[in-house]
Amino acid sequence: TPSSGEVQLTEEAVRRYLSRKPMTTKDLLKKFQTKRTGLSSDATVNALAQLLKRLDPERKLIADKMHFFLKE
């Protein structure tokens, strides 16, 4: 498990967040900040885009903002 404060951008981690509650792309990015993952911002954007396409989560417009979520 990552040391304190460090997180890993994995499909499992994204799946866990989206199963918990609907999140916007910005919410997710805040969970995987570059200073916590050690990834560059481009790498983070590309990785997250690939993971989201693979997970193919549900989408929901909340307060005019697109949210992703995964039903259990």
């Binding site: 792309t25 910005k26 805040k30 911002s41 954007v45 989201l52 396409k53």
Partner: peptide, 20 residues
């Protein structure tokens, strides 16, 4: 910084545009 998150969110949504 939230501006970094904003920029990255815009880039991410651009990546996902057909997906959104």
């Amino acid at each position: 910084s939230s501006s970094e998150a904003d920029e990255m969110a815009a880039a991410l949504e651009a990546e996902l545009n057909d997906f959104m």
